[in-house]
Simulated scan of single mutants.
Amino acid sequence: MPSTRDRALAAAVRLVGEQGVRALTHARVDAAAALPRGSTSNWFRTRDALVAGVVAWIADQERGDLTEGLARVSTVDDLVDAIATLLEDATGRHAARTRARYALFLETTATPNRQPSLRVERSRFETQVRDIMLSLRATDPELATTTLFAVSAGLIVNRLTIAPDAPIRPAIELVIGAMFPGQ
């Protein structure tokens, strides 16, 4: 059984992912999580604290997905499979979480003090992917990592907004193939 805190965070992510950032209030989170009034504010005293908690929770969930997805990567084909699966999940079964992440990213651009935590989280993801690029001997691991993140973000936005059935794998094969010529 998830803790009260985890129930609140999961509900907050659903609210933001389905209704937008304006839906993120302590009272709405309590209601969505079926918690007594005031429960969410016990964990997160201010809205800023709630936003920070949600951002960290999303990052933890996504880091777990990334770690699990990359654990079996030992070839370039494995990398294509892993990234395609991760992006399909991000725009399918985890679409609300992904929409919440993007909404919160945009929300926090107006609040510079929140940006450092987002950069730290992004850096952790990049390190995991860069390590894979290094182990598979990408031509330029740094550029490969940056490019893969940019293309992935574009594919995610495309699928979440205008083309929910757009194929992911062909684009990922093309991009990763360019990173590993001759493999």
Rank of each mutant, 00 (worst) to 15 (best):
T4W: 05
A8D: 05
L9Q: 10
A11F: 06
A11R: 06
V13L: 07
R14C: 00
H26E: 05
A32C: 07
A34V: 09
A34W: 05
L35G: 03
P36C: 04
W43F: 10
R45W: 05
T46V: 06
V51E: 03
G53Y: 09
V55Q: 09
A56T: 15
A56Q: 15
I58H: 08
L66W: 15
L70N: 13
V76W: 00
D77M: 03
T85H: 14
L86R: 03
L86K: 08
L87I: 11
E88A: 15
R93Y: 10
A100W: 09
L106F: 09
T109Q: 09
T111H: 14
N113E: 11
Q115E: 02
P116Y: 01
L118E: 13
L118Y: 00
R119P: 00
E121P: 00
T127V: 08
T127K: 13
D131G: 15
D131I: 02
I132D: 02
I132Y: 00
S135L: 10
R137L: 06
D140N: 15
L143D: 06
A144N: 04
T145R: 08
S152Q: 06
A153Y: 01
V157T: 08
R159K: 10
T161E: 13
D165C: 01
P167M: 12
I168N: 03
E173M: 04
M179S: 09
P181Q: 05
